[in-house]
Design a protein around this nucleic acid. Structure first.
Lengths: 356, 356
DNA sequence: GTGAAAGCGCTAACAC
DNA sequence: GTGTTAGCGCTTTCAC
């Protein structure tokens, strides 16, 4: 921490030219070479660096974008954040991380707080959505891009994925490898992902292709390992008339890990006695033992797309609301296939295989 | 995105009072109740919300703190970020996430960029440090807190931990459970953590208590699972004259997971044939199978401490540079103890046990 | 190509 | 307790 910073005014005085010329010289907009040299020299001598706040006030742009999620600890959001940062930083934008809290109410508050104009745009991935939130986003004074549910009809930019279809891919894969009695460990139904995935599971297991087999859902309190462990214990303690479960579909990778731990407690081998699939295709799932078959929802892609979208909006591209969809795809790994001892590789993007 | 936002001036006109009174009324500083009511009503009618930029320019405070790390995907940094956010948000501070890049040079650039005054302070955890960086931090126009190496002598606020001692705890634990031939999988030596951990391992294994046993280091290219897997393959393919390795100390949890995967490839059971310890006590280590014995370096605590420190500094607390140390402690889990089938619990903070 | 001046939205002296 | 006014640092008309 040293002496107070130099202002443009001081640079101007030092160079012996006007404030306006100094500004122009530093931006290279319509100034003679002599002027540019002179001003640059003065700026260097003073260690001048332009003040972001003064500039923001004048230009009405902060060069900041907010990214808001319920829980920044969740690996999916971390992947999104990384991707968003990678897209925005080269354009000179900073990323402000915010927390929505678990409820819609606090998310609405957050969107309203955009009124203080500290960012040029917002990327938000709400766990739950209602009319008040939709309305708040519509009224927001800066562009908002939603990652999650498609909100195109509501006139809101959104980046979505078809997690219901993704769940279908997981079920189809399990049926294909001969599993017949499939349990589903889902998270809370009142969340956007929870609801979509339940729809996907119900649709997949009531399709003709699934006839004659057994399907059953158990709901975890949260999308975490701990909640998944508890839910799986409940699920696996029941034995359907059709026979014991031979597969479990989990609504995300963390729940899937909980399921595998529960299987271990009960002496069930994975995938031998119980095949398990996750969703989100996280790093942790790739390195877990057994590595996790998982439905990729393209977290990084969704982050990138959202960042690009908000960048377009901030750049005054006035178009109707856009909806970008990232297709889910299944990545098959050890938790649904017999592992070969020598095939235990590191985090491989190579073993991918698209299903359906 | 709707109509342009209302300004304080407009609220003043609407209320039929002066600009200053409006400001005062809204802040509750020396205004009559009647004035407050009147102004509040006008503000509400206009949906006024104060402009953060105008206020920042005037107050010379942005209410933003930057958090900069090389790789925001690393679970340790995510934990720090969460803790930092939790401390700062209640004080009205936003968190700006920045990337230092892997080299010292880009970190120096980042510190210099503080000159544009977009944040009131910085928390940075550099992987590598040199004189130029120390000097840049000293010259920085806003308070900077370093998480990592102690920089008290250089007059810089820092939050550190004794990872060398932590490594000693891991080695002591392995010796205690009867392991005699211990390998060490470290990350790059030219990083601050890499160097410290190597020092710790060398010290622990050259202490009298370790006499007559075998110690050997293998260096991974990076602190990742993939690099750990490759390094462990190299290490375990060698058989010391004293006999095969019966334990591996890894410099962090990600490396440790790579080690366990390598052990699996070679048919070595963990912890039966090979006991493995990690460091950082991450979430992923807790849920891994086998769950990871790990040296906690108090990531969340360090984040909290750094946030508190930067908060004190921006609050004009002028004191000599502070150095806060968070003590490491060993958390024993399955990877160094025989697991009981029914003891495979969820992420437990309960099974902790301090060593030494 | 250069300079003078206005003004972005806000807070804090300073008078009354 | 209230109003008037200056000014934070910058960009951008507008005249010349």
């Amino acid at each position: 921490m040293s002496s107070s910073r130099a202002t443009l005014m001081q640079v101007a005085e030092r160079a012996g030219v006007s404030l306006a010329s100094t500004s122009r010289a530093l931006h290279g907009t319509g100034a003679s070479q002599a002027m540019v040299d002179r001003v640059r020299a003065a700026a260097a001598e003073l260690g001048y660096s332009p003040d972001a706040i003064g500039r923001s006030l004048r230009m009405k742009r902060t060069f900041q974008i907010a990214f808001a999620v319920a829980d920044i600890g969740n690996p999916v959001y971390v992947e999104m954040l990384t991707a968003i940062h990678e897209v925005l930083a080269p354009h000179g934008y900073r990323v402000v991380v915010m927390s929505t809290g678990p409820t819609v109410g606090t998310t609405v508050d957050l969107v309203r707080s955009l009124g203080s104009g500290f960012v040029d745009g917002l990327i938000v991935s709400p766990l739950r959505t209602d009319d008040a939130l939709v309305e708040a986003i519509r009224q927001a004074p800066v562009p908002v891009v939603v990652i999650g549910r498609s909100l195109e009809k509501q006139g809101i930019d959104s980046v979505s994925t078809d997690s219901a279809a993704g769940l279908g891919q997981a079920v189809a894969h399990l049926v294909e490898i001969g599993r017949r009695r499939i349990g589903f460990v889902n998270g809370p139904l009142d969340t956007t992902p929870g609801a979509a995935r339940q729809r996907g599971f119900d649709a997949a297991t009531s399709a003709p292709a699934f006839a004659g087999e057994h399907a059953e859902t158990e709901r975890a309190d949260d999308f975490t390992v701990t909640a998944g462990l508890a839910a799986a214990r409940r699920l696996l303690s029941r034995t359907p008339a059709a026979g014991p479960f031979d597969a479990v579909v989990a609504a995300n990778d963390l729940l899937a890990i909980g399921v595998i731990r529960a299987a271990g407690e009960l002496g069930l081998t994975v995938p031998g006695a119980l095949a398990v699939t996750g969703m989100d295709d996280t790093e942790i799932g790739k390195v877990f033992q057994p590595s996790l078959t998982s439905v990729s929802l393209g977290s990084a892609d969704r982050g990138r797309a959202a960042a690009q979208l908000v960048l377009d909006r901030v750049g005054d591209v006035v178009e109707p609301a856009q909806q970008i969809a990232i297709g889910p795809h299944l990545v098959v790994r050890e938790s649904t296939t017999t592992p070969r001892a020598d095939a235990v590789a590191g985090p491989p993007a190579s073993k991918e295989k698209s299903a359906r």
